[in-house]
Design a protein around this nucleic acid. Structure first.
Lengths: 212, 212
DNA sequence: GGCAAGGGTGAGCGAGCGCTTAGCGTGCCC
DNA sequence: GGGCACGCTAAGCGCTCGCTCACCCTTGCC
């Protein structure tokens, strides 16, 4: 019918780097199915059916069903890390960079809720090797946020008694957006991003927190 | 062998109300299995095996595998609601009650991580009727927290521009503890509860936030 | 036009699933 | 101490799972 560049959620044309067109369609179908029903409850027949193919076609492009999840998880984590790095290494005060990081990270989780759900909640469905690789990416995500908070503490902008714990809480808050966010709900991803950036600035004791 | 009153996590002797002893053992086994592998990836043979029984024994006490999940989910949500109600309707200022609610809610998620995981993350695996019932309980959970925050705003203790959004964020923060908390990790449930209570008081702009 | 290469299909394999059924052992009531 | 209700098991039913295989179309090169 058409290229799969626009999804229901209006994600920023993802999966552009997945090269054979059929492979990309299968990956997109797998993301939808995994997000809706979970990895273990999704059948290869369902994935192939959503992509308009026969069940056997899946195995031309992917060795197993788990390879699909692995690919989705790695690409998703790299995208998330990229978002945080861009915000973290931008110019501006730690306050501005933290607000930017949180709001864009939250927007990504809300807009691409299907993808984010798979990325954040299906980690345990991976085998040991694949999981170890993804856990490494998650550590980098954590380090990026912790870096901004440490900058703010050093510059005196933030008042944070427990930096690792607060980092954990900030990331936890953002990640959980993928669980509850509803595209048909009352809030846009931008509104949630702005609200959460404000709440996080309050958490770290930034002075201009609460300023609309 | 023995009664199943003490679990590895050291939960506050739960599932006491599940009356035939074999039924309680099966329920406990199901909680462990669902938390480890997810509902769909757990087999009835696995549940029965953990309880030291044959697969057929499960169907003497429960009609289907889904009924097990439903029972776990309802009991868990009722316990969570009970915790929040106790904190909410206690005496003290809104600040004290919110801190009490958050710290005890977080402790419950951390201590009973296996149970909380099933309760918070396997909701979608329930059928429509069972899910509707649980969603009703969750609305009561939300109302309880929102009530405390509204009290604090009315009394002037809190500065919260967006009460529903902040309520959502507070609950989200607590619930996500079940995803990342590790019993073998560096933090005790009590420490996380205290940290999170402080962070939430900062989020609502309470004056004595940050006081150790 | 011949023909190799590669993306695709229909049918089906072995395995494991949720769940059922026939029958067995044990304790309680009379 | 005979009958029986009950908790439980061994065996297995029908079904669906992830995945494979033999074969078929289209495409591009000579």
């Amino acid at each position: 019918m058409s290229t799969a560049e626009e999804t229901a959620g209006g994600e920023t044309q993802p999966w552009g780097e997945v090269t054979p067109d059929a492979a990309r369609r299968l990956l997109l179908a797998a993301v939808e199915a995994f997000a809706e029903r979970g990895y273990h409850a999704t059948t290869t027949r369902d994935i192939a059916g959503r992509a308009g193919m026969s069940p056997a076609a899946l195995y031309i492009h992917y060795k197993t069903k788990e390879e699909l999840l692995h690919r989705i998880s790695r690409i998703g984590h790299e995208k998330a890390l990229d978002i945080l790095r861009t915000a973290s290494r931008g110019e501006g005060t730690a306050t501005e960079r933290l607000a930017d990081a949180v709001s864009s990270f939250v927007r990504w989780h809300a807009r691409g809720r299907t993808t984010a759900r798979v990325v954040q909640y299906e980690l345990d469905s991976l085998g040991p090797d694949a999981r170890a690789e993804i856990v490494g990416l998650r550590r980098q995500v954590d380090a990026e946020v912790r870096g901004i908070i440490e900058d703010g503490v050093r510059s005196g902008e933030f008042d944070v008694p427990d930096v690792p714990g607060t980092t954990l809480a900030v990331l936890s808050l953002c990640i959980d957006v993928a669980r509850w966010f509803n595209v048909d709900g009352p809030r846009t991803p931008e509104e949630v991003g702005a609200l959460y950036a404000d709440l996080v600035l309050r958490m770290v004791g930034a002075r201009n927190a609460g300023a609309a």
